[in-house]
C-alpha cells in the first residue's frame, strides 16, 4: 500500500478490491486512468448542461414573451414550499455524496456506506415528494401541458392562454430532471453495492467519484430550476 499506484504488490488474495485494483491494459498507470475517467465525466456533464440549456432557453423566451401570465401561473400551480424542501434535500444529498468520496479516500468504509445510504434516501425522498405532491395531483386536476390541459380554474383563478405553455415547460423540465434523479439514485445504489463489497478505497474510487459528479449536476440543475419555476415574479 505504500507503493506507487501502478504496482501490484503482494498477493492479490489477501487484499481487497481497491488495494489490488489494476488499471486496464491500455493505460500506463492507475492515475492516468483515473484522471481520464474524470475528464470524460466532466465532458459528459457539459453535454448534460447543454441538454438542459434547451429547456432554459425555451423557458427564458416564453418568460420574456408572457411575463405576467407566467408569474400568475407559477404562483397558482406551484407550491414553493415543496420546491424549497426538495432543494434542501438535494443540497444535503450533495453534501453526503461529497462526504462519501472523502470517506472512500480515507478508507472509512462504514461512513462511506452510511453517507451513500443517506444520499439514496434523499434522492428517493425527492422523487416521492415530486410524484405525490406535484405530479399526481396535477395530473388528476388536468394541470397538464399543452393539448391535454383541461383545468377549468377555481377560486377566482381563470387560466390564461399561456398556462398550458407554462405547465409544458414545467413538466418537461422537471421530468427530464426527475429522470436524472432516478438514474442518479440507481447509480448510487450500484455504488453502495460496490462499497458493501469494499470496492472503494484510497487507491481506487473512480466510479464513486464520477457518480458523485453526476449527482452534483442533478443538484446544480435544480438550484436553477427552483427559483425559475417556483419563485417567478
Amino acid at each position: 500500500m505504500t507503493t506507487a499506484p501502478t504496482d501490484m504488490t503482494g498477493d492479490g488474495a489477501s487484499q481487497t478490491y481497491w488495494e489490488r485494483y489494476r488499471h486496464q491494459p491500455h493505460w500506463r498507470n492507475n492515475d492516468d486512468e483515473y484522471t481520464a475517467a474524470k475528464l470524460g465525466m466532466w465532458l459528459f456533464l457539459t453535454t448534460e448542461l447543454l441538454l438542459f440549456s434547451g429547456m432554459f432557453v425555451a423557458y427564458t423566451i416564453y418568460r420574456i414573451l408572457h411575463a405576467d401570465e407566467f408569474a400568475r401561473a407559477s404562483h397558482y400551480y406551484l407550491d414553493w414550499r415543496v420546491g424549497a424542501v426538495n432543494t434542501a434535500v438535494l443540497l444535503i444529498s450533495s453534501f453526503t455524496v461529497a462526504m462519501a468520496i472523502r470517506n472512500a479516500q480515507l478508507n472509512q468504509q462504514f461512513w462511506l456506506k452510511i453517507n451513500l445510504f443517506i444520499t439514496i434516501i434523499c434522492g428517493l425522498f425527492f422523487l416521492v415528494a415530486k410524484l405525490a405532491l406535484e405530479y399526481w395531483p396535477k395530473y388528476q386536476k388536468g394541470e397538464v401541458p399543452g393539448g391535454f390541459f383541461s383545468y377549468p380554474g377555481s377560486h377566482g383563478y381563470v387560466p390564461s392562454d399561456y398556462d398550458p405553455l407554462f405547465l409544458g415547460v414545467y413538466w418537461v423540465a422537471t421530468a427530464i430532471h426527475g429522470s436524472h434523479v432516478l438514474i442518479g439514485v440507481l447509480l448510487l445504489g450500484w455504488c453502495l453495492w460496490r462499497a458493501q463489497k469494499r470496492h472503494f478505497g484510497p487507491r481506487h474510487f473512480t466510479s464513486l467519484e464520477n457518480v458523485g459528479l453526476f449527482w452534483h449536476l442533478v443538484d446544480l440543475i435544480w438550484i436553477f430550476l427552483f427559483p425559475l419555476l417556483y419563485l417567478v415574479g
Binding site: 500500500m1 507503493t3 499506484p5 492515475d31 484522471t35 453534501f95 461529497a98 472523502r102 478508507n107 484510497p202
Partner: peptide, 29 residues
C-alpha cells in the same frame, strides 16, 4: 502525475476535501 506514496490518509494521492469545509459549504447553501 507522479506516484504518491500513500499511507492511509492522503486518499491515494488525490486531494481530500476537508470535512469542515464541506459542512460549511452545505450550511451556506
Amino acid at each position: 502525475m507522479s506516484s504518491h506514496d500513500a499511507h492511509g490518509h492522503d486518499g491515494g494521492g488525490h486531494h481530500v476535501a476537508p470535512r469542515n469545509l464541506l459542512l460549511g459549504v452545505l450550511i451556506i447553501l
